[in-house]
Design a protein around this nucleic acid. Sequence first.
DNA 1: TCTATGACGATTC
DNA 2: CGAATCGCCATAG
Length: 105
Amino acid sequence: MASGSEDERRQAIFATVMAIPPGRVCSYGEVARLSQQPGLARFVGRILGEVDGLPWHRVVRAGGQIAFAQETKKYHEQVRRLVEEGVEVANGRVQDWKQRFWQGY
DNA sequence: TCTATGACGATTC
DNA sequence: CGAATCGCCATAG
């Protein structure tokens, strides 16, 4: 199951990311799982970079860390957006990692 | 056709 | 806790 055309898979990932509510975060791997495509975390990252209009800032690594290097511009932008939504970020990672999107992870 | 490379992840040491 | 490895998929060269 999970195997469909690459476009269908993209759609599923798109829908999952769009469903993440403000103030909450989700990991790449979890987005993949919720999209019925376990193991395709890397694929998720690529989609976030290609498609615009997605709340990409709400997607972080499995440990709650920002996926960008701290000296990059994107890193700062992501942190800024998260903080604006009330998500605590410090030292490159989301502090209250309990504010994850979907429970049961 | 093969290799290297990513906005990743889990495991192992 | 950090570094090394291997797995995953699509792309670029």
